[in-house]
Design a protein around this nucleic acid. Structure first.
Length: 858
DNA sequence: TCTCTGCCTAGAGGA
């Protein structure tokens, strides 16, 4: 029988004599029921506490473990296979691997390249061509890791020859192989990506050497865990293989130097590996830091000994290896621990999404279903599937990594979305499998990046930067001369202060005040003075936008770092290509990248004089550290009256604004909205300190656009700002009456001659946006408020989707309304249910404001 | 019943 529940009490482990000899035994109570754990499973009692979630598989009728039983601690925690691998070496290595960034060292870069070549070879690629292509593609990384391209080519070639020589002897040839298989089990709380499967048996590739007849123990554990995951799919591999590609270059006298080492994956090994997984899960549940005493690790021979001792010393941790160096300040330690905790808690939340995936009952926002593959193309990298699909309201966007499956997402393959329209989805995928649905793959990528940036900032960051961040030191400014910006003293001031800042400057830019132009002027002026600038932001869209605007006024030498899917077409020619080495990065005046990219291996090798960070009011401190670590001078651009970070934390912009209000400048002239449109926002959110830049801006109307005939608009749509009342009876977050009304308003505007491209529809809920989008022409942009932040349109229709007492948390943050009301240049139409909107003061005042010109009776 | 973007998820070195 199987059992899963919450531990209510735990007995102690003891030894009893049985007819099989002495055995360990312990009792655990789960939701009040006694479960008896025998043998090695008895250790579980020492891992768990009251409140832990535990699953038992194949117990006997008395709820005792048998030879076939498995016990899983905290199955909802999705432990990664590689985490267990390093835990087996030493629990501290697992912890260090989590908080420290991947070093830019040649062996690591080489390991990546050899894996890529291995994958190419399994697809039948030519060795020479694959080595050449992969090494050249990563030219900058190779050079930054301290190796020349020529030597790397030779080296990778040797490893590739070892693989292909061995593959050529393989009876299966290229058949019977699958590469890069994603394996996930929510029953075991385990996930991982296996390098390859050879007729259902796991194969792991290592670029090192192993002269014994057996693979290293941690490698066997890694492969055993893949075998365990395969069993969950009904595949029962009897053996596993580790390939050590460096063995090919060894002397035969050293022992067994064949590259591939097979070994048996028996029940004992699998159970052991699962218990190790449980140890990791128990530690993660408590958010504890291991000391190294948990395992019989021998510190004297450990190559991670120095970093282990340094981290322990800096963070005042106990470590088996000992501690060296000076501890960080107490407030820094506190900040580190708090941030670590917060990141780990958010990671757990993401794991909850795996459980929903397994249920298959996942809400539609996480998946696209009823997909039909229409066409399959083969390209050098794998396959491209062109699929028809019904319209959807999912979170899935172009560039995302998704699980493609024929029904059960947990048995899916990773695919990348190349194109997405309401009717079609095009993905690239390594295997041509049957596909009927796509699911969001819950990614914890960002968390490891935040942890490593946090580590760098607090543990290895410079004193002065830290003191400014923690409010221990006042930012300093020097005198600089800059040319003035015509008719805009506040922009001129922002550029001057930004350039004068030796530590920090905060530029607050309310909607439409020319943040992007100010950034361009500042970066250009900074480059003119011989500085090297990092231009960064949270989203790719904002980075691209900043780059485009900079290039309009400057001929600075700029490199855009990012991924193919992320960087927009308009600036993709600024990315490095295969012919560029590290010098292209070292010589650039400006490097532009997302904050996430800034903690990548490549960016971590670069230093700058100044970082200009856009969207800083949407970034948490830990997310911003990646960019802040790259330069001693920080210029943050944002607006604390617009949307905050999604994570429930204060933004880095707000934090520093509170600590250093004297380092802030505000932009006050807005170029976007007609006077009538900006008035409410200016009064409610900016104390009336924002003005139209000039008379033309203030007097903007829809009439000014060619082809528009305002006589075709009837009251109340004639007014620049107007309100349309609709009674609402929502189903979920879909307010259907409002959907219809909004579509009607859009149609009226289009009939009056407004171009579709000049109209935008925004609404708080994604599902509401999806419904509206189906009822308006394709060139009308429909999106959530959050996603519309940063852009604007001539005419905006807001579907407020309010009902009842407006209980939804989406209405709790008033800043969302500020964003919604400040996207329109010439016409703002609000659609909503008056009786609901009256339940909140701010919204009620908004209704009165919108109706001020309205002569029709309520 | 809320909002949501990043990223190629690779790893030598010892017994």
């Amino acid at each position: 029988m199987d059992l899963r529940g919450t531990v209510t009490s735990v007995g102690s482990v003891r030894t009893v004599g049985t007819r099989y000899g002495d055995r360990e035994v312990a009792e655990v109570y789960v939701d009040g029921d006694e479960v008896t754990l025998w043998g090695d499973w008895a250790e579980t009692a020492e891992l768990v506490d009251e409140g832990f979630d535990v699953a038992f598989y194949d117990l006997d009728g008395d709820r005792s473990t048998t030879a076939d039983s498995q016990v899983v601690v905290e199955p909802s925690y999705m432990v990664d296979v590689t985490a267990v691998r390093s835990w087996v070496q030493c629990p501290r290595i697992q912890y260090l691997g989590k908080i420290r960034p991947t070093p830019m060292e040649y062996p690591v870069v080489k390991g990546t390249l050899v894996h890529q070549v291995f994958e190419d070879l399994l697809r039948g690629a030519d060795v020479d061509a694959s080595v050449e292509r992969r090494v050249r593609e990563s030219g900058a990384e190779v050079e930054l890791s301290g190796e020349s391209i020529e030597d790397a080519l030779k080296d990778v070639r040797q490893h590739a020859d070892a693989i292909s020589g061995w593959l050529n002897q393989d009876s299966l040839g290229e058949d019977g192989w699958r590469s890069e298989v994603t394996l996930v089990s929510t029953d075991l709380g385990l996930k991982g990506r296996c390098d390859a499967l050879r007729r259902g048996r796991p194969v792991e590739l290592k670029t090192g050497k192993s002269v014994g007849s057996d693979p290293y123990f941690q490698d066997k554990i890694q492969v055993a865990l893949y075998a365990l995951l395969l069993r969950e799919r009904g595949v029962y591999p009897e053996t596993g293989t580790v390939i050590y590609t460096k063995n090919a270059s060894l002397d035969r006298s050293e022992g067994d130097v064949s590259p591939a080492k097979d070994f048996t994956v028996g029940d004992g090994l699998l159970d052991f590996a699962l218990r190790k997984r449980n140890e990791v899960a128990a530690y993660e549940r408590r958010i504890e830091v291991p000391t190294g005493y948990e395992a019989e690790a021998d510190c004297s021979r450990c190559f991670e000994r120095d970093p282990c001792m340094v981290v322990a010393g800096r963070l005042q941790q106990e470590s088996k290896a000992g501690e060296i160096g000076e501890a960080v300040e107490n407030h820094e330690l506190e900040f580190f621990n708090e941030s670590y905790r917060s990141i780990e808690e958010r990671r757990r939340e993401v794991y909850g999404e795996f459980a929903e995936l397994a249920d298959g009952g996942r809400s539609s926002e996480y998946s696209i279903t009823d997909v039909e593959v229409e066409r399959v193309e083969e390209d050098g990298e794998g396959f491209v599937l062109h699929c028809r699909k019904p319209p959807d309201a999912s979170k899935i966007r172009e560039g995302d990594v998704v699980l493609a499956s024929d029904g059960d997402p947990l048995r899916g393959e990773m695919a990348r979305v190349k194109q997405l329209t309401p009717e079609e989805i095009v993905v690239s995928i390594s295997e041509d499998i049957r596909v009927s649905r796509f699911d969001v793959y819950p990614s914890e990528f960002g968390f490891s990046r935040e942890l490593s940036a946090l580590h760098d900032f607090v543990l290895t960051g410079e004193r002065r930067r830290k003191d400014v961040f923690f409010g221990e030191r006042e930012p300093e400014f020097r005198d600089v001369d800059v040319g003035s910006i015509d008719g805009n003293p506040s922009q001129t001031d922002a550029v001057r202060r930004g350039l004068a800042a030796d530590d920090l400057c905060l530029i607050q830019g309310p909607p439409g005040t020319g943040k992007t132009y100010t950034i361009a002027r500042l970066v250009a002026a900074s480059v003119d003075r011989g500085e090297r600038v990092l231009l960064s932001s949270y989203t790719n869209r904002a980075v691209d936008n900043a780059v485009e605007n900079l290039l309009k006024i400057s001929d600075a030498n700029l490199v855009r770092v990012g991924t193919e899917g992320g960087v927009g077409d308009s600036v993709s020619h600024l990315m490095l290509d295969g012919d560029d080495g590290a010098d292209a990065l070292r010589d650039a005046d400006v490097v532009a990248a997302t904050t996430s990219s800034c903690s990548g291996r490549l960016m971590r090798e670069l230093e700058f004089d100044r970082v200009v960070l856009d969207e800083a009011s949407q970034l948490t401190s830990t997310a911003a550290f990646a960019a802040m670590n790259r330069a001693p001078r920080w210029v943050f651009v944002g607006d604390q009256m617009q949307l905050p970070p999604v994570a429930p934390e204060e933004s880095v912009f707000e934090r520093l604004l509170e600590l250093h209000p004297d380092s802030a400048v505000s932009l006050d002239k807005q170029y976007r909205m007609a006077q009538r449109i900006q008035a409410f926002s200016a009064g409610e959110f900016y104390d009336g300190t924002v003005y139209p830049a000039n008379h033309e801006v203030a007097a903007k109307t829809l009439d000014d656009l060619s082809n528009v005939d305002v006589d075709k608009l009837e009251d109340p749509l004639r007014d620049t700002v107007c309100f349309v009342d609709v009674e609402s009876s929502p189903q979920g977050n879909v307010h259907m009456e409002e959907v219809e009304k909004t579509a009607e308003v859009v149609e009226t505007l289009l009939d009056a001659g407004v171009e579709g491209d000049d109209v935008g529809v925004i609404t708080p809920f994604r599902v509401q946006a999806a419904e509206i989008s189906e009822r308006v022409p394709d060139d009308v942009a429909v999106d959530t408020v959050d996603r519309f932040q940063g852009s604007s349109k001539e005419a905006i229709v807001v579907s407020l989707a309010a009902s009842g007492e407006m209980e939804s948390p989406v209405f709790e943050d008033d800043r969302r309304l500020n964003v919604a009301l400040t996207r329109a240049k010439r016409k703002l139409v609000l659609v909503g249910d008056v009786s609901a909107l009256r339940s909140r003061g701010l919204y009620s005042r908004m209704v009165d404001w919108a109706r001020a010109d309205d002569t029709t009776p309520e």
